[in-house]
Amino acid sequence: MLRFKVIIIAVFFLSVLPVVNAENSLRPEAKVSVNSVIIGDHFPYTLSIIVPRNAVVTFPRPDSGFGSFEVKSFQEKTVKNTYANNAKKVEGVYLLAAYDLGNFTIPTMNVSIQDGTSKRSIVFPPLEVTVREVSANAADKGDIRDVKPPFSIPYPWKLIAAVLAGLAIFSAIIFALIRYFKRKKAVDEPQVVIQLEPYEEAKRKFESINAGSFLIDEMYKEYYSSVSEVIREYLQKQFRMDALEMTTSELLVATKSFKLTWETQDTFRQWLQSADLVKFAKHFPTRIEGEEYLVQAHSILDQFYDVYKSRMETPSHSQGL
């Protein structure tokens, strides 16, 4: 009978002991890194508990209410194989911040533990935290000081003047050398002058006159004189006659030997006389007449050039030219 009672008592203690050990093994803890923080600073608030390895821990949601504190982030961490009897330590770390000054309380927190079919709730005690202003520390008050008065820095005027003078002299020497070598190069290099044929030269002068503003500015006397002078200069260079000094009559007599057609000779005569009338203010042409005068000059130049080419094909004339 006594043996039976001992067995009953042993079974009772064996059934109650795991429950007591389980309650004691939870070891819930709530803590903050500091009890006094500066307004706006972030600080961690940690809830930790030791539970069986297969248990599921549910921490309060970040928006479930933390009093005057604002939750910036939340992280759940598990430390395995740290404790005996297949236990694990689970931590819920909240990053908090406060934006009001004073003493505030982080309220009690309820953590739910699900272990198989068993579910329980653990209550974590409240914590006091003081939120202070930035300059609360006496050591910090000395950081803000009055602005020091300005002070003068001695300026090395003599050194600056010497440097500027040296730069000026150096620049003058470089400029003189560059100018000297440019002049020397210009003297040493032979000047290449391209001599155009009289016909090509006359054509270019006509183009220059046409591009000018004689007709736009109604400078008809200068215009007619310039155009007629191009033809006279061509005759003087190409046929070696003193055409620039000849009168209209003398020039017509001198060109009779060219054996021009009667129409060409008559056109040339009228063309020369038109220039004389304008030059001596006996005729005031229009702009259209001036443009036609240049067209006739091109045609007359081509006629004289044909005469020159035909003479070059004749041996007797080519020797004379």
Rank of each mutant, 00 (worst) to 15 (best):
S171W: 12
Y305F: 04
E200W: 03
V192E: 13
K80R: 14
H283N: 08
A84F: 06
A172V: 14
R53I: 09
W262K: 14
S15R: 05
K141W: 00
F69D: 05
E313I: 07
H298V: 07
S310D: 12
I122L: 02
F170D: 02
K119T: 11
E91R: 08
K259V: 04
L196G: 08
D266R: 11
L101P: 11
Q236Y: 09
D276A: 04
A186K: 11
Q75K: 06
D146C: 05
I173Q: 00
E189Q: 09
V11Q: 04
W157F: 08
V295C: 00
P190D: 05
F74P: 01
E292G: 08
F124C: 06
S249N: 12
I49A: 04
P156S: 01
S15D: 00
A168L: 13
F268K: 05
P52A: 01
E291V: 11
A297Y: 00
L260S: 08
K31S: 06
V71P: 00
D217Q: 11
E133Y: 02
K5A: 13
S15T: 10
V16I: 09
V278N: 04
R240V: 15
E23K: 11
T105P: 01
T130F: 06
N137S: 14
T314M: 08
R132K: 15
I194G: 04
S48R: 13
K237A: 13
E197Y: 01
R120A: 03
Y308L: 08
T78I: 14
F4G: 05
N137Y: 09
R204M: 10
L272V: 03
R232M: 06
I49C: 09
P18N: 07
I7Y: 00
Y308K: 13
D302K: 10
A172Q: 14
M219C: 13
K158T: 07
T78V: 07
L294K: 07
